[in-house]
């Protein structure tokens, strides 16, 4: 990725919607430093009460899996259905599974 040196670095933003939930990726933004990134994230992504906690991570610190390796990374799990807990009888009373 070519980075314009006049452009602020990119940050990825994660927002926790409610206590007990995990932080979800919501988007990205430009900021000169982490504190500014939090401020911007607050203004951009939590204007409508979307969250109670924010994480920001410099985008360049994220290592992603290679799309060309999708077959070798993910395909092999496809036929291993025994990894899914589908062989149990779930009692009727258990609602949220």
């Amino acid at each position: 990725m070519s980075e314009d040196s006049r452009q602020w670095p990119l940050y990825e933003v994660f927002v926790r919607a409610r206590g007990g939930l995990d932080h979800k990726h919501v988007g990205s933004l430009h900021a000169a430093d982490a504190r500014m990134a939090i401020d911007h994230a607050r203004d951009l992504y939590t204007r409508r009460l979307e969250g109670i906690s924010i994480w920001v991570v410099p985008s360049k610190e994220i290592t992603a899996s290679d799309p060309t390796e999708t077959d070798s990374l993910f395909e092999p799990a496809r036929d291993k259905i025994y990894r899914h807990p589908t062989f149990y009888d779930i009692p009727e009373e258990v609602k949220t599974l």
Partner: peptide, 11 residues
């Protein structure tokens, strides 16, 4: 100066 500041100031 930046889209993010536009929103920040408007906020």
């Amino acid at each position: 100066p930046a889209l993010e500041e536009d929103l920040g100031l408007a906020n």
